[in-house]
């Protein structure tokens, strides 16, 4: 059966237990449609890079699924209906990656210091001039 990798973001004011039950329901739904969820990974509460539906943080859950296509369509339909799920991304993959995904692997090696690794920056990424903080309330002359 085709292999899928699905990641969903749940609302930030869900308790971890609710997130667990959400993933459990989704996995159950896949199972009774004839598929299997080979791996479930909780990335926990993470900061979102931008606000989604007024949420700054979200519970991320990764699932590796081996199921027929209708099961995936049904799962996605439910995720769409469910208000607690902010966003989901299901991809067809050729092979599931074993072991922890890049997200969990990243945590055990040293935390990311700043950004921009050894890759050369070249002309495009010239250093930014931080814009002066202009706030209407207090007119601070700099």
């Amino acid at each position: 059966m085709p292999l899928y990798e699905s990641v969903l973001i749940a609302r930030q004011d869900l308790s971890p237990a609710q997130v667990e039950s959400l993933t459990g329901d989704t996995a159950g739904l896949i199972k009774n449609q004839g598929g299997t969820v080979t791996k479930t990974e909780q990335w926990g509460l993470r900061n979102l890079a931008y606000r989604i539906k007024k949420n700054r943080k979200g519970h991320y859950v990764l699932m590796n699924i081996d199921a027929p296509a209708p099961a995936i369509a049904e799962m996605e339909r439910n995720l769409r209906i469910n208000e607690d799920v902010l966003r989901y991304l299901t991809l067809r993959v050729d092979a599931h990656e074993e072991g922890p995904s890049a997200m969990l692997r990243k945590q055990d090696d040293e935390p990311r210091e700043g950004q921009g690794g050894p890759g050369s920056r070249g002309g495009a990424g010239r250093p930014l001039r931080p814009r002066p903080q202009r706030s209407e309330t207090e007119q601070k002359g700099d």
């Binding site: 921009g116 050894p118 495009a124």
Partner: peptide, 22 residues
């Protein structure tokens, strides 16, 4: 999912770096 690798190919503003540079 590997944001550490991807950020290496983003400019400060978060734009994708052109392949002629990276």
């Amino acid at each position: 999912k590997d944001t550490r690798l991807l950020t290496r190919y983003l400019s400060e503003r978060g734009k994708i770096m052109p392949s002629r540079i990276s």
